[in-house]
């Protein structure tokens, strides 16, 4: 079961839209077994959601992504969790990671414009109690995201028939 679940996860990580019947055939399993395994993993929050990877650059709507390095003073008895929660509850925040090294939290935020992102940083983030400093880096271009290369190479370079 563990092995099957891992295989399902690897398949879903590549294509969350995969047809369950098809997946069952490919994994030599049954539809029922796969459906049950997925339901179980959803309940256990192993599968946390099915977002779509979008190349926003190709959509007319303007989007900017920034990665913010945040230094904080951890609160007694709560460590970093409380301050992280206060940050991740904002809708514009896409990811929050606790880091080792020179700063404490990585906050990835997505906004409509640089101005919007900047406003978030100096109005919401920087003034927060226990935040010591922030350093904002804007993403200029995404080459690869979630394991997928954004510029797809098209043609099959192989000769069309061979032994």
């Amino acid at each position: 079961m563990k092995e099957l679940k891992e295989k399902i996860l690897r398949a879903l990580a590549k294509n969350a839209k995969i047809d369950i019947d098809e997946l069952a055939i490919m994994l030599g399993s049954s539809k029922e077994e796969i459906t049950a395994a997925i339901a179980e993993m959803e309940a256990d929050k192993i599968i946390c959601g099915y977002p779509t990877l979008i190349d926003w650059d190709k959509v007319s709507e303007e989007k900017v992504t920034a990665l913010i390095e945040v230094k904080v003073t951890p609160q007694r008895g709560q460590g970093f969790d409380k301050i992280a929660e206060r940050i991740y509850k904002f809708d514009e925040v896409e990811s929050v990671y606790l880091m080792s090294g020179g700063f404490d939290l990585t906050v990835i935020i997505r906004g409509k414009s640089m101005r919007e992102v900047s406003r978030f940083v100096f109005e919401k983030l920087a003034p927060m109690e226990s935040i010591l400093s922030t350093a904002t880096h804007f993403v200029l271009k995404k080459y690869k995201d979630q394991g997928l290369i954004m510029q797809f190479e098209s043609d099959d370079p192989r000769i069309s028939m061979s032994y």
Binding site: D156, R158, I159, S160, M161, S162, Y163
Partner: peptide, 20 residues
């Protein structure tokens, strides 16, 4: 076959003997 396939537009070949 090779000659025909190479000339043919939107042909799909399942005739390859090497990894993709």
């Amino acid at each position: 076959f090779f000659d025909i396939v190479s000339e043919m537009k939107d042909a799909i070949s399942l005739g390859v003997g090497e990894p993709d």
